[in-house]
């Protein structure tokens, strides 16, 4: 991306930079929340679970801050073109990140419910792998957003199929454990909810990537565009 020139009004430039930094900071908080949420689940770590639940409040505060910053800039600066897109997408991305924070909180809450249950390590493998994939998706989407990289954004959208496929296979696996021994039903149901949360996080990563594409190109990422790129990659 060619270096953009500074605004004639420097305080406007400063505000746009502060907005981008706020999104980056919120992204970092959310990534940590997903990691901690899953970690608290895998290790049944009550302390970490409590910390993750508490951290969600800070993520919510951050979203409100980004909203306020954006509204204030729209009202005072009358942003145009890519500046306008940067502000509008910041509002959307912050909203997606806030939802991801909620999902991470739910993961942590499930870990508290799983305490004291007889869980075999094999039960967790799927959730662990899915977390790694989903976390990668969120990171790539946030990088695509901050670097204004439309190509990376398309990749994230195309990889969402993998997340969905993993969710389906995890669903089948957990169902098998439940059929093997009905005593597994409670724990496996909780894990199913966790898998669903992770799948939703994957969807939010796709949303963020779509915003990144729009921010850079000024065009909405339609399914046609995604399909076009998918076939290009295959060919």
């Amino acid at each position: 991306m060619p270096a953009t020139k500074d605004h004639i009004v420097t305080s406007y430039s400063d505000e746009l930079v502060a907005l981008a930094q706020a999104i980056a900071e919120m992204g970092g908080m959310v990534e940590v929340a997903i990691e901690n949420g899953t970690k608290s689940l895998l290790k049944l770590d009550r302390e970490l679970a409590d910390l993750t639940i508490l951290a969600d409040q800070r993520i919510d505060d951050m979203q409100r801050r980004i909203d306020d910053m954006s509204v204030s800039m729209i009202a005072r600066r009358q942003p145009m073109a890519s500046d306008l897109r940067a502000i509008i997408t910041a509002i959307h991305v912050a909203q997606d990140l806030e939802r991801v924070g909620d999902m991470a909180k739910q993961l942590a809450r499930r870990s508290l419910k799983l305490e004291g249950m007889n869980l075999q390590p094999t039960f967790y493998n799927g959730v662990k792998n899915m977390t790694a994939l989903v976390l990668g998706q969120i990171k790539t989407a946030l990088d695509a957003y901050s670097n204004r990289d439309a190509a990376a954004a398309i990749q994230v959208c195309n990889r969402d199929n993998e997340v969905d496929a993993m969710h389906t296979s995890l669903f089948r696996e957990l169902l098998t454990y439940m059929m093997e021994d009905p005593r597994n039903i409670t724990a496996c149901t909780q894990l199913l909810f966790c898998a669903k949360s992770l799948e939703r996080i994957g969807d939010h990563a796709t949303n963020i990537a779509e915003r990144a594409y729009y921010l850079q190109t000024g065009k909405q990422l339609s399914p046609d565009v995604q399909e076009f790129h998918r076939t290009q990659i295959k060919a």
């Binding site: 020139k5 605004h7 145009m80 890519s82 065009k219």
Partner: peptide
């Protein structure tokens, strides 16, 4: 023109950037 101008000069002007 105001949401997605093609030329960089247009962009810089409408966004109030130093030309």
């Amino acid at each position: 023109i105001f949401t997605n101008p093609v030329h960089k000069q247009t962009q810089d002007y409408i966004m109030g950037r130093i030309g």
